[in-house]
Design a protein around this nucleic acid. Structure first.
Length: 504
RNA sequence: GCGGGUGUAGCUCAGUGGUAGAGCGUCAGCUUCCCAAGCUGAAAGUCGAGGGUUCGACCCCCUUCACCCGCUCCA
């Protein structure tokens, strides 16, 4: 990797501090001490995120004739999650090793005969002394150190559960608490499960299932035939075991997913297509190629439904032990085969198939899915844009070099000084930009240098300044963020000038 | 959830068992014809939260919350 003058953690701390200072990202409910894994986007953050989503939608839906949009409900029929496998797969019993503190999945642990002799490593170290012990009753040992001193199995429901309907299931539990008390543990758990299940619904852990269950609705109403896609942007929810790194892993997050339905046999070609397409999307929005890579999943990494999967990864400046930063996922491109449509056909009894009238063939389409994280992309664009720059004169400035289309504020307008009618003129230019739909900012306070630097920290690509010459020949200066150079442009052509810049 | 670290002004950080500090930033005024300039003034803090010890706690003890690192999971 490229050598870094400062270590990654320091950079990340500066970014977090700038996010707070300038209004990109705040911790949720901060005045109450914050809430784990929850963040709010401030005035600049929401503009950036909206632009990211807008660019995605443009590239996926508005510039193509083979993909249409969808916005489906976050709460869906619970059978959806039975069919998708989330209801079972999201409830893995986890166990902690009391010796080496390893946490592991009970169903993946090495099996042993209860009561038999086992050998384990002292303290969980590979070079630890070999010790002998007795296998525990649960029938498995710690996969790390081989020890048998384990915590109870604990169930982690990784989907957020709530109840649909006005009556709280706690009422029913409360009514039956005397009966429940008479049951043994397993029976009680089962009985409680039944009560909860009556009204249980889940916040979706991915938007994808909405596209699958609406496959027929959309295919028929839009008169599309494979290959075609359905795109959706929306919130999803997962009880992540370890959230962290600002908005990188949160329990509430926004996805930008597209399910592309193709004829079986064409799937590998389309997989390659989207592979390339999605990588280039980030590059075209100015992300540095050196900080991006495609990583194919190894065979054992693949989800049960996927035939192939590759991640678009970004080199985030998160704090790490070596201070270098770390590759983290931005987006996954997966070949989900016909798994999802088949499952929903099976569970719903509705045939989710496509009949090709020309060839008289009926088939269940394969699905290629580029699934991106809107918050992750936003964070990556933010990290990628961040720079502490030392200028030729030795001064330092902090600048966010956003692609102009992603920049929260497109242009700032200043009077050079607060007199001679300059503020009135700059105000007029500012209004004309707003009228033209260009998100602009007007600032008259303090010295102009300070205003330029403030806009550098906000990532504003252009600053327009009204000066003494404006009154003489009607021109203003346009100062470019990255080069800090200025050109003179006629004030009445400024809207068009910027619009052209923003289109490129 | 477990182990390690952290928490004082918007940001970065000092601080002492005896009534809370600095720099930067912010705001107002003056000045200023191009890159965080200068002068004057101002606002701003539940010292993460709750309890305990103490005559007295930001400081000592306990609990808790949040963040960062490691283990595990994922977009």
């Amino acid at each position: 990797m490229a050598k870094k003058a400062t270590n990654s953690g320091e950079t990340m701390k500066k970014i977090v501090s700038l996010c707070k200072r300038r209004g990109f990202i705040f911790q949720s409910s901060e005045i109450y001490g914050g809430l784990k894994s929850c963040y709010d986007y401030g005035p600049l953050g929401i503009e950036l995120k909206r632009n990211v989503k807008e660019e995605w939608w443009k590239s996926m839906v508005h510039t193509r004739d083979d993909i249409v949009g969808l916005d489906c409900s976050i709460i869906m029929h619970p059978r959806v999650w039975e069919a998708s496998g989330h209801l079972a797969g999201f409830a893995d019993p986890l166990v902690d090793c009391k010796l080496c503190k390893e946490r592991f999945r009970a169903d993946n642990a090495p099996r042993v005969e209860p009561g038999s002799e086992i050998v384990y490593r002292e303290g969980g170290r590979a070079d630890g002394k070999k010790l002998k012990g007795i296998a525990p009753q649960c029938g498995y040992v710690c996969p790390n150190c081989g020890g048998g001193e384990l915590s109870d199995e604990r169930l982690f429901n990784l989907m957020f559960r709530t109840s649909l309907g006005p009556v709280d299931p706690l009422q029913e539990i409360s009514n039956r608490v005397a009966d429940l008390a008479k049951l043994d543990n397993d029976e009680r758990r089962k009985a409680l499960g039944e009560i909860i299940k009556e009204s249980a619904v889940y916040l979706r852990p991915e938007t994808a299932q909405g596209m699958f269950v609406n496959f027929l609705n959309i295919q028929q109403s839009s008169r599309l035939k494979p290959p075609f896609g359905i795109a959706q942007i929306g919130k999803s929810y997962r009880n992540e075991i370890t959230p962290g790194n600002l908005t990188f892993r949160t329990c509430e997050f926004e996805q930008m997913e597209m399910e592309f339905f193709v004829k079986p046999g064409d799937d590998e070609e389309w997989y390659k297509y989207w592979h390339k397409e999605r990588f280039n999307w980030y590059v075209n929005l100015g992300m540095k190629k050196a900080n991006l890579r495609m990583r194919d999943h190894t065979q054992d990494e693949l989800a049960h439904y996927a035939k192939a999967c590759a991640d678009v990864e970004y080199f985030y400046p998160f704090e790490t032990e070596d201070g270098e930063g770390v590759w983290g996922e931005l987006e996954g491109v997966a070949n989900r085969t016909d798994y999802d449509l088949s499952k929903h056909s099976e569970y719903s009894g509705k045939a989710l198939v496509y009949f090709d009238p020309e060839t008289k063939e009926k088939y269940t389409p394969y699905v290629i899915e580029p699934a991106a994280g809107a918050d992750r992309a936003t964070l990556a664009f933010l990290c990628d844009a961040y720079e502490d720059e030392t200028l030729p004169d030795g001064e330092e400035r902090t600048v966010l070099r956003f692609h102009p289309r992603l920049a929260p504020i497109k242009a700032a307008v200043f009077p050079l000084v607060k007199k001679d009618g300059m503020p009135e003129k700059s105000e007029a230019i500012y209004r004309s930009l707003l009228d033209a739909g260009v998100n602009a900012f007007h600032d008259v306070a303090g010295a102009v240098g300070r205003r330029y630097r403030r806009m550098d920290e906000a990532g504003t690509p252009y600053c327009i300044t009204v000066d003494g010459q404006t009154a003489e020949d009607g021109t203003v200066t346009v100062r470019e963020r990255d080069s800090m150079e200025q050109v003179r442009v006629p004030a009445d052509g400024i809207v068009q000038y910027l619009q052209e810049k923003l289109r490129s």
